[in-house]
Design a protein around this nucleic acid. Sequence first.
RNA 1: GCGGUCGUAGUUUAGUGGUAAAACCUCUGCCUUCCAAGCAGGUGUCCCGAGUUCAAUUCUCGGCGACCGCACCA
Length: 507
Amino acid sequence: MSEPAPQEVSMETLVSLCKRRGFIFQSSEIYGGINGFFDYGPLGAELKKNIRDCWWNDMVHRRDDIVGIETSIIMHPKVWEASGHVAGFTDPLVDCRASKQRYRADQLFFAPVVVDGRTVGYVSALEGERTPEELQEAAESLKRKKSIQGKLEPVRVRDMTEAAPEEIALIPSPATGEPGSLTAPRSFNMMFQTNVGAMTDASSVAYLRPETAQGMFADFKAVVDTGRVKLPFGIAQIGKSFRNEITPRNFVFRSREFEQMEMEYFIHEDADWAKCHREWIDWCKDWLVSIGLPAGRLSEYNHPKEKLAFYSRGTTDIMFRYPFGVQELWGVAARGDYDLKQHEKFSGIPQVIFDEASKKRFVPHVIEPAVGVDRIFLALLCAGYAEEDVRDNKGNVEKRTVLRLSPRVAPVKVAVLPLLKNKPELVARAEALHRALKRKYAVFYDESGAIGRRYRRQDEIGTPWCVTIDFETIEKDGTFTLRERDSMKQVRIGEPELFALLEEKVY
RNA sequence: GCGGUCGUAGUUUAGUGGUAAAACCUCUGCCUUCCAAGCAGGUGUCCCGAGUUCAAUUCUCGGCGACCGCACCA
């Protein structure tokens, strides 16, 4: 697919447009902001809602094989043990500031070198790198190097999780052999922790979900038992998730609180999962195009086999070309039966389905398309933003800023404008049309300023159409000007045709 | 988390050891018969804290936040 090379909008420009027009604000800005959190303003909330509605309509309402659910953000802590989120990410890590190496604290050992009861230095080693005997030798060599006389005591080896704060600065880095560059062990678990109930103790620890997917797995049995579903079928959910990202970056691309749209599509254990996987990748790409993302900015990335999570059979990311590079937009993972099997193991409750066709009872396999609402939001702005040179009626070139959002997602579908505001009959007719339209659509009424200015204002927030009530409307046939955002072309149409147009384009 | 750059109005920027300016945006009125027109008027700013100083938006330190690299991203 060939397109003219689009001029790349800078993130800076986009961020300031978002703020200026009320799409996205930094969270808690009056207190200096908080890193990795964002608020959606009046227009942003509309755009975001439209993304969710389009997805839900297409994924749930317009299909016969998918049901939607909404699960709690805080779930039983065992959910995250079963999913692997707790175990895999509680290891404290130690960084070497000099070499930029990162070590697991329980795999980095050290021992004080004690001579005549006095600590004269430290030796260290990675797991498997040196035996205790070799560490003893290293201690003796340190003693010799420092020309210290006296009796060297046997080394007592500990790992970094046991290091006292005052010891850390004295322990040499395994990378450089010099002390002073190691950080204290830090936990890098990305789950937000909280406590359930007023008492704060170990038994009350709970987590804000790092993904919505586990809600679908945990409720799998309940949906199967009540939902009259038959394989293959899907369970979909839209909701907030939370990850304590080390470094939130790139505006809303990676934030600590974000909104996911995930769907778990359950298939027969003998089904052709690769074919199903492919079909979902294609569905997702088609859907992205249907809400206005150019196909030319999309690509696919297949996770190499050796880098896959051990339970995954294949993961394909649908990538988008953002101004800061080609990055993940939508992950489509073939997860096998891993998740349900884990919940079976941890809960003791069989997560099986009885398939009428094959007369078999088994744990189904799953294909998971997972996407972030905020990332789609960002992609729409990046792809839609344009600055054009246009000529005014004196022939001067000036800049037009336009956000080319699809009518499906645009925060405002139509702006209703009386040509002049000091003519009561124009204003009255415009207000009547506004009343009629707003029963069904997000519309905007604006009578202030010159007509050209009002058009440009709507261009900048992505409104696809403006209708202008003029003297012909009230004196002749009731038609008004329909002005189209991208082409700036104007045609005269009447109210029934306007409703027909909206019915077709806004769905 | 590391290194670099930075923080003045809603936005973009100017400027200063003596509490500050412009353009655009926004609001009000007048005008205006289709692409950011004009006139008049209005709102609104030195990221936070400590220190130095008679005096700090300006200098120093700390914090917070932003951007760019590196690392991280199950």
